[in-house]
Design a protein around this nucleic acid. Sequence first.
DNA 1: TGGCATTTGTACGTATGTATC
DNA 2: AGATACATACGTACAAATGCC
Lengths: 245, 245
Amino acid sequence: MFQPVSPIRAYERVVDQIEQAVFTGRLRPGARLPSERDLMTQFGVSRSTIREALRVLQSNGMIQSRAGDPRGPEILAASPENLHKSMRRLARTSMSLGELLQFRMLLEGSAYLLAARLRSADELAEMDVALAAMAAAVDEGYSAFSDADVAFHEAVARATQNTLIVVCSDVVREVVVDLIADRIAHAADQRALMLSYLRHHTEVLQAIRDGDGELASQLARRALHDSYAPYLPETEREMLSPLLG
Amino acid sequence: MFQPVSPIRAYERVVDQIEQAVFTGRLRPGARLPSERDLMTQFGVSRSTIREALRVLQSNGMIQSRAGDPRGPEILAASPENLHKSMRRLARTSMSLGELLQFRMLLEGSAYLLAARLRSADELAEMDVALAAMAAAVDEGYSAFSDADVAFHEAVARATQNTLIVVCSDVVREVVVDLIADRIAHAADQRALMLSYLRHHTEVLQAIRDGDGELASQLARRALHDSYAPYLPETEREMLSPLLG
DNA sequence: TGGCATTTGTACGTATGTATC
DNA sequence: AGATACATACGTACAAATGCC
């Protein structure tokens, strides 16, 4: 009959009101919040309460306040940084490698499909540069090779022009690579591994250059599967097979 | 030659240290932090600084502190809530409807593909229930229909067993629906719209029942495209076509 | 350029309601 | 039921940083 009541803290009410103002567009990026002292009188709470609210908003990337700035805290535009952080935390702490690979295959599969069709000449040139860097890095060791590899994947993701594809791909790739980094570090033949990756990337880039999205997508998914499935426990491998088609 | 210096606040150093302890697993979910008074002596900062740090950690979903609890703030397991919030903010404020639809098509396309292959009998039953609720809601109005629609999509997403698919689908669907809610509210014939959606969902559910992932995926992508592309400006329509194959 | 007024950052003290034993 | 320790919230004070004149 009655709802359990959970006390709403003073600072939460402050956060909520300011968040609402931002969401509804009443406060636009670049605008300034009143000073902390003004806010305490407007909200009728103490300065510590205001400060706790501002810290929360700041950690959510919604405002930025600098010591001594008489213009007050600034409203910031939404940035992918916060999304990146929270997705990484969830991915790292409560997802299996199989789930991550599954998500990465579906994401990159579609990213390569889109990139092959929508890429500009400049974006294709970026991929060429990254691939050349990978080839050059084979003799410099896995760390340099991996950096070039990241640049290649980022160039493809950016070519889709889709913010969520860029951010999600970035996070998932990072976490997957983290999870198996030590196994690669102890791999018997790192050079053979790098050459294999290089061949995969060369093929898929050719498909992108040709505008063959279906081929690029399939090559990318298969390369991901073949490269990482061996690190999976048996029971998790079948969850990837539907994405190979 | 020189790096720009940005002063690191006291509360940030506190947050960083506690975050590190959580990430490295030194503090596991369910564990307790020392009381605020203990933390001030351990970190050598004032109470307000500790409290600002705890507020930030709490807003990030990493801890929960309750007044009067002598066991101290509790370390929480990572939850999708924070990811949901930050993704929604980015999607709402800095992505076009075209980008969102593109992402939704690739996500749901893969989700239906996976669901058709991996679903359990229980999960299929959930979809049946949701579809029946949609059919029943046609006469109750668009709001009830939309609720049942959400339940259907959530059942499909959950059947993939992939946390990121569930969360991302949920966010993107919500934002897309928000963006065109008013246009649907003023649609000439809401009933025809609902019947059309109902037919799409019936077809795709049959494909899932048959285990035909490719068909389910294609139907889902085409239904999304046909339902929402009319709301797009001309220039944004071609970015969706690669995903129709 | 330097100095001033204002703002934020931090510290400390105190009162009050609350959860646990 | 009482004792204890806790978080919440308020207020004051001072140092450091900033913008502006």
